[in-house]
Simulated scan of single mutants.
Amino acid sequence: MELAKIRNKARQEGAPGATEEVSTPLPEPVVLQPDHVVPPALTLSDDSAAQQAAPVSFPGPAMARAVPAAAHFNPLAVILAGREHDRSTNGTVLPETEQEHQTAASEERFEEFLCFRLGDEEYGINIMEIKEIIKSRELTEVPRTPGFVDGVLSLRGVIVPVFTMRKRLGMSLDYDAGQERIIIVRCGDSLHGLRVDRVTDVVKIAATDREATPSMLEGVAREFVSGIGRTGKRMLIILDICKVVDTALGEVG
């Protein structure tokens, strides 16, 4: 019963102590015994409190997602995709038919040749056999070498024998040496120098524009030539470099 009602009732009944305050009795103090252990108060970690204090929100109903249909394997599409990848990677255009492929392949079979001149004749060396081209320089003579070997030079510590191509091919030595160059070629693991009148340019020759060595050439000269190449109106005498630098073949008569 509320305190105000108790007071009113006490006044009406005239009970003694009606004017006294009614107080709620206090609980008796708890006396701890020696063996009594007070359990620790329950505490919440920061993470637990944060989780409990964080409001919980519920999203609306989940949208139904369409299940993609299983892709049908198309081998033709895979092949075409691979061709497209090769085209973009290599920058080449692949033919659409096998006939076009064979035609394109025959057109793309060509070799590049460095061209140089000896007098009025033009010669070619496959660029894959060439290491570098240097200006003519003084050579160190070596005794008891063939007459077409003018001497040797040191190319970054490597001794390189130098062949004068005019002597090697039995040509006249009367020429203008103002544009003379030495072409450093590689045959196997060895380097050799070829002294020529001048270097002109590099040309591409298709396989269909190459011809066999003419039958009119005989002896050592025929050994030096691997074929004849044509580019436009020009005709190149293509040399077999390993035969040219083979001193065992002797000199052109």
Rank of each mutant, 00 (worst) to 15 (best):
I133K: 05
G124I: 11
H101T: 08
S106Q: 13
E96N: 06
Q99S: 12
R83H: 01
S88Q: 14
V142Q: 05
A81C: 13
P143V: 12
I127V: 15
T89C: 14
V93Y: 04
G151A: 02
L80H: 11
T145G: 03
G82R: 09
T103E: 14
P95N: 00
T97N: 00
R144G: 12
G147A: 03
R87D: 08
E107I: 00
N90K: 15
E108Y: 04
P143W: 08
T140I: 08
D150E: 09
E96Q: 06
E132L: 04
Q99L: 06
A77Q: 11
P143H: 12
E141W: 08
A81L: 11
T97F: 00
T140Y: 04
D150A: 04
T103I: 11
A104H: 01
D86G: 13
D86E: 14
L118Y: 06
L139V: 03
E138Q: 05
T145Y: 02
G147H: 04
L80K: 14
L114F: 08
L153M: 04
A77H: 12
Y123L: 08
E138A: 05
E98D: 12
R109E: 07
V149Q: 05
K135E: 10
R109F: 10
T97Y: 00
E107G: 00
R144L: 15
R144D: 13
G91L: 07
E84R: 07
E132N: 03
S106C: 10
A104R: 01
N126C: 03
Q99W: 07
T145S: 06
P143L: 11
S106D: 12
T92R: 06
P146Q: 00
F110M: 10
V78Y: 00
A77E: 09
T89L: 14
C115A: 09
